[in-house]
Design a protein around this nucleic acid. Structure first.
Lengths: 248, 248
DNA sequence: CGTCAGATTGATATTCATCAAGATCGGTGG
DNA sequence: CCACCGATCTTGATGAATATCAATCTGACG
């Protein structure tokens, strides 16, 4: 596991991620560039933050995928968010101090850590950037709301289809997916922790979904052959992702 | 439906709600008191905000209960949050402009509306209050995460028990419940939209839960006879509610 | 007394969990 | 190169949780 000390810069993914929702000024960019990051690599399944810990840093996904996971008494796990490159994790910890969930590496991934103190400094110096950081919390919450609908009101098959539509659009926006294909090399066990069903059932609905011909997901690669059809099948409405750029 | 123009004050519930998590200075209180509210009453099931609308105001629950609800294509609904007196709704709309869900009155209730413009003014003048407003968003998100676990990994019976534990502590903190009793006069249909199961099933698990002797819920009144037992039964851990007061 | 919303019950179908066993695949040491 | 190994994926059989559909009951209220 490689670790670097503070000093690395994350301006690329960060500017892309924040600039996707609102225009950034030169001063904004300079301030973001002044955030010190330490980089660290994780293997699949590694714990990044433990539940009920008090991190003191927030964490930007540089490469790979991470999950926020709540752990039940009986050992069961429910993934409450999948975070992709450019996503900030645990901005909430800035205010809550203690986090209520765990963060795991879903795939091998690289994370950049920056101290809360530095984030507060940036917020103080540029309220506009502060708002964009909060915006990313608020969009996470919007996604969580849709996921609540997925878990409460959808069949697991339509949930799966919906998840694929969402991931594709988020990854396309992050610049790491195009032409309706993307790499997403998680195990079926991990997928079952996202969908809230058992591994066995996940395996079966994956086969059912393949049989529709709308999308294939094998060997860590998702290929959507008919995005419109898949969206209709899933009842997918992308508005909650706030992918349009506008003043905030 | 009674409507008032701006001018009413909401300092009581608001100060109580924000002051629960961190101390408020005299200046903080004065600023909060300067927020103009217009009050409006709603009947059970009335829509407060429509999905995909652009409110321009945020809304404080003064009395009664409200829900955030996502609506599915097939007409099904999933409640993603229950908001109690003192809760702010749609602070997210401050940044998102457009909301992705509907807000309904779960019971007859009174709401206070204040313009986003005024909230931004308060944020600018008192960053500390701004942080407390964001804190309430972040706590809502923490509750949503737990609800995702409830929907994904719990049996509907344990979900119901968990919901009752959560509601009691939130209402006790809001000063409108004590001695393990509270009024919560929603219909079983509405409860089923919270639990993500059908009305029929909701009715049955309510009976099962009554049979445990841990809690009763009838005629709009919840009476918990053994909070410890109910918590254990539900696997309830209150930490996610952030009910402790600390500097933010 | 009639009406209507809400609560309850019954019978049956579907979805999903559970448990157990194989199959496949990539890597690894001999 | 091959045999083996663990992780992952797949399949089968069965039971529990939940949905669906259709009545019926209850209580509040005009």
């Amino acid at each position: 596991m490689s670790v670097s000390t503070y000093g690395a810069r994350a301006i690329g993914p960060l500017a892309r991620s924040l600039g996707r929702r609102d225009a950034l000024s030169g001063r904004d960019l300079a301030l973001l560039d002044s955030l010190p990051f330490r980089m660290r690599a994780y293997g699949r399944g590694d714990e990044v933050f433990a539940a009920h810990s008090t991190p003191g840093e927030s964490c930007l996904v540089m490469e790979g995928f991470a999950s926020r996971t709540v752990e039940m008494r009986d050992g069961g796990r429910q993934v409450t968010a999948v975070q992709v490159p450019g996503d900030f994790l645990d901005l909430d910890a800035l205010l809550l101090h203690r986090i209520d969930h765990s963060v795991f590496a879903l795939t091998p991934c690289t994370m950049g850590f920056t101290p809360h103190r530095e984030l507060r400094r940036v917020q103080d110096q540029a309220p506009h950037l502060g708002r964009l950081l909060w915006l990313s919390c608020v969009i996470d919450a919007a996604i969580q709301r849709v996921w609540l609908g997925n878990l409460g009101r959808r069949t697991s098959l339509s949930h799966l289809a919906h998840l694929i539509c969402e991931l594709y659009l988020r990854l396309e926006a992050a610049g790491i997916a195009r032409l309706f294909r993307f790499d997403f090399a998680i195990t079926q066990q991990q997928l079952s922790e996202i969908l809230g069903v058992t591994l066995t059932h996940t395996n079966r609905i994956l086969q059912t979904l393949r049989a529709t011909g709308l999308v294939d997901w094998e060997h860590g690669r998702v290929e959507i052959s008919d995005f419109g059809g898949l969206s209709r099948f899933a009842g997918f409405d992308p508005r909650y992702l706030s992918l349009r750029r506008q003043p905030r």
